[in-house]
Design a protein around this nucleic acid. Structure first.
Lengths: 149, 149
DNA sequence: CTCCTAATTAAGAATCATTCTGATTTAGGG
DNA sequence: CCCTAAATCAGAATGATTCTTAATTAGGAG
């Protein structure tokens, strides 16, 4: 599943500006890794991104993909997600959103919802620490897995 | 941080019944691994449980702890949690609850809240699949980390 | 346009969590 | 009291991720 072209471009522009801002070089590798991630809605892992990017940059190394993803994550341009025990999945969507997770195959999809995003939980958690953000994780069975069984 | 004694016993009794029910043996190792998990509120990983259990069962192996945790997870007596890239953390709390996660040190604490648990998200997700459950993840900085900085 | 330097590459090794092997011993519970 | 599942031990295998070192490439400031 692909993200719409104009949204991809919006993300890429934000990315370019942030890389310049941080004083880093805008290399082909960084651009292609980011563009690949910004174009896909299914949160690939490092290997998946590597396989896709290799079509356009045949000499890219898996190591560079890992290094680039870590760099972008440190800059806050992408987020890491996924459950412990699996490989790390990446997400170029930095807008406030929530996740649908298939408990069977691990598929993750973003969704936005104003009401959910407006949720305030601070009051109940004074004992644990300061609250920064609240995210909803909806678990279920995705359509593909439903059709298979 | 410890769970109250009567809650631990409640969990242990549920555990004993379920192990019998499944036709598995109630070994010391299984009991001690489960009791350790049921007593701690901070969701230890396999190594942490191993270290604690070793005090009471000096000959237990890390392998047995891993195997036991997987068995209990398959039975639905415990849950696995944690972010990709870290080790798997375990949770003996099978009641409906939510998580507070410290983005700095990774601490996870459970909390219950009727209003949050009553949240219904089905309508918004028809396109992705069937919804089974909704869990809230609150991210922030825990008290310990706040005091250190 | 040129040059400095950061980034990439290659090939390999290291680390860490986790699972598996296979042979041997232990102990739960009918 | 025995049968058999489970545990143990030691070690090895796996897979994701990170690091090493040395040589090459290329971004972008001047």
């Amino acid at each position: 599943m692909k993200i719409e072209a104009h949204e991809v471009e919006r993300r890429v522009e934000t990315f370019k500006a942030a890389v310049q801002e941080a004083g880093l070089k805008l290399t082909h590798q960084r651009l292609e890794v980011f563009r690949e991630l910004a174009s896909s809605a299914d949160h690939p892992d490092a290997h998946g991104i590597y396989d896709s990017v290799k079509h356009r940059l045949p000499t890219v190394s898996l190591d560079t993909v890992y290094r680039t993803l870590r760099t972008l994550s440190d800059l806050g341009l992408i987020n890491m997600l996924g459950t412990a025990g699996e490989s790390i999945r990446f997400d170029a969507n930095t807008r406030k959103h929530h996740h649908f997770v298939c408990v069977n195959c691990g598929l993750v999809r973003d969704f936005e919802n104003e009401e959910l995003s407006a949720l305030q939980v601070q009051e109940d958690l004074v004992g644990f620490g300061r609250v920064l953000e609240t995210q909803i994780e909806v678990r279920g069975i995705c359509n593909d897995c439903r059709n298979k069984s």
